[in-house]
Simulated scan of single mutants.
Amino acid sequence: MRSQDPSQIGVSSNTVGTHLRQVFVKLGVQSRVQLTNALRQEGPDERPASAAPTPHANT
């Protein structure tokens, strides 16, 4: 999953970590391994029943 240095795509590693933590919470996982397993089970376009949609802060 860490195939690219975040600075090569113009973001900090802190930004990547922040977004990953938000995804972990939404999907109910605690690690990248669990995230990978959840995506393999559900598919990237499927949302687990436990994940509720959240409104965007800037809308």
Rank of each mutant, 00 (worst) to 15 (best):
M1N: 09
M1V: 10
R2W: 10
R2I: 11
R2M: 10
R2Y: 10
S3H: 12
Q4A: 12
D5E: 08
D5W: 01
P6W: 03
P6H: 04
P6D: 06
S7E: 14
S7Q: 14
Q8K: 10
G10C: 08
G10W: 06
G10D: 07
V11N: 12
V11C: 14
S12H: 07
S12M: 04
S13L: 09
N14I: 13
T15H: 14
V16W: 07
V16G: 06
V16T: 04
V16D: 08
G17M: 05
G17T: 11
G17P: 01
G17W: 02
G17D: 03
T18E: 11
T18A: 14
T18Q: 09
H19W: 14
H19L: 14
H19D: 04
H19P: 00
L20V: 15
L20N: 05
R21W: 14
R21E: 08
Q22S: 13
V23Q: 15
F24H: 05
V25L: 10
K26S: 15
K26C: 11
L27A: 04
G28M: 09
G28V: 05
G28H: 06
V29Y: 00
V29F: 01
V29C: 00
Q30H: 15
Q30F: 00
Q30N: 13
R32E: 12
R32W: 10
V33Q: 14
Q34C: 06
Q34N: 01
L35P: 09
L35Q: 08
L35E: 08
L35F: 13
L35V: 09
T36S: 09
T36M: 02
T36E: 10
T36G: 07
N37V: 01
N37W: 01
A38K: 09
A38W: 05
A38I: 01
A38D: 01
A38Y: 07
L39A: 02
L39E: 04
L39M: 04
L39K: 05
L39R: 03
Q41I: 00
E42C: 11
G43K: 00
P44V: 00
P44A: 02
D45K: 14
D45W: 12
E46K: 06
R47Q: 10
P48R: 15
P48W: 15
P48I: 12
P48T: 10
P48H: 12
P48C: 11
A49R: 12
S50F: 03
A51V: 03
A52I: 03
A52H: 14
P53E: 15
P53L: 15
P53F: 15
P53S: 15
T54S: 06
T54I: 13
T54Q: 00
T54L: 11
T54Y: 04
T54P: 00
T54W: 02
P55K: 00
P55D: 07
P55C: 05
H56T: 03
A57Q: 12
A57R: 09
A57W: 12
A57G: 10
A57K: 08
A57T: 15
N58L: 13
T59P: 13
T59Y: 12
T59K: 10
T59M: 07
